[in-house]
Write a protein that binds this DNA or RNA. Sequence first.
DNA 1: ACAAAAGTGTTTTCCCTACACCCATGA
DNA 2: TCATGGGTGTAGGGAAAACACTTTTGT
Lengths: 224, 224
Amino acid sequence: MLTADLVILTIRDGTLCLLVVERGNEPFRGCLALPGGFLRGDESIGETAARELSEETGVDAEELHLQQVGVYSAPDRDPRSPRVVTCAHLAIAPGLPLPSAGSDARAAQWLPISEALELRDGLAFDHDEILRDALELARAGLQFSTIATAFCSPEFTISDLREVYECVWDVELDRSNFHRKVTEAEGFVVPTGRRRSTVNGRPAALYRAGDATSLSPPMMRPSR
Amino acid sequence: MLTADLVILTIRDGTLCLLVVERGNEPFRGCLALPGGFLRGDESIGETAARELSEETGVDAEELHLQQVGVYSAPDRDPRSPRVVTCAHLAIAPGLPLPSAGSDARAAQWLPISEALELRDGLAFDHDEILRDALELARAGLQFSTIATAFCSPEFTISDLREVYECVWDVELDRSNFHRKVTEAEGFVVPTGRRRSTVNGRPAALYRAGDATSLSPPMMRPSR
DNA sequence: ACAAAAGTGTTTTCCCTACACCCATGA
DNA sequence: TCATGGGTGTAGGGAAAACACTTTTGT
């Protein structure tokens, strides 16, 4: 029995949030859990994850970042059966609307990461461990890859991108130096020529994600 | 059906080598493949990998570095059945003796990486892809983690460690600067106080691996 | 004109590289 | 004492941090 579980992250109102669903069945009925589903006979595990992602968020997985976190296979991780193995995936999405507690009757909601990590009873199964591992992966990924753009809409400003780094790393970055690094890194962002007006201040230039997947030189996370 | 396949790397005579076995059964009979085996009911996939590793190399997996590479689950990856999913692992070992073509009658051998990547017919199944991914992981890992010490014996010299980086990255590094970086990085290596005499030259101080698992500042791989 | 946010320049600091040099040993 | 590899010192270049400054908008 192989399942794909999803750690779906997004940024809402300057806060890093996780998509959780409330379980309708035993075990862990009423408990919060990561969305997920079973591998079908004709698909790869990546396709399973992509399918679940689009079912949960309504977003086509083509555009989003989706990556394996790891396999979780402790024999007692699922009380029903010793052999439910899950392959956890990390999905990064731009700000999405509150998911409708949809057809499958599962209440889905965005939960700030800080709350998700401090739930009284934790998440169902070993999902706490999965979440911690996925978060670590996302944080490290920002340094060496261009996945940060996956948190942004197709068109974004440099400040949008900086907000991603600041939310995920929980740090503050220097505006000027960030701007320089990002615009000078080859293939990270490409200017679209358009601008976005804000309530006050000079309108910011809009960019879209570039071709590069790895970021060099890396954007090092401040040591403390 | 879940299996664990192993990319076991070691350094022999200054060359990065891979442990391969010759398949005794169809499919891919006579073809070279990565060692691996099936998940048992009472173990996690990590335990499966550790068990296979010690069966193949005779080394207890406690000491070695073992890490998941990813899940390979394309429906057609195994001609026998659409549902043989494998979780590939990367194992890093200090120089080991030539494995004896042992009890299970499979001829095992160390193959230089350069040859493994250029086999006329490739490795069995999707093991070429797995090897490339695992290699990439190892190369990247050297930059940000302390896994390089896993290639070395319990006690090693700084030159031993430098050889690891040079073999895996296929570059030459400056002796002095490498020495400084490694000895100054907190928790990477600890001096044992002992020394190793060589045929000529000053004896080198011996070190053992430190507590740290992540390496900061990172050891950046030269761009070219 | 002013506030606010975007974006640019400039200085300072720090790290990495390159390479010269000293150290300890065997022959 | 010479050859060989281990290990340390140091000057110079380049990148990043810190921060002052200019630009462009809405009100």
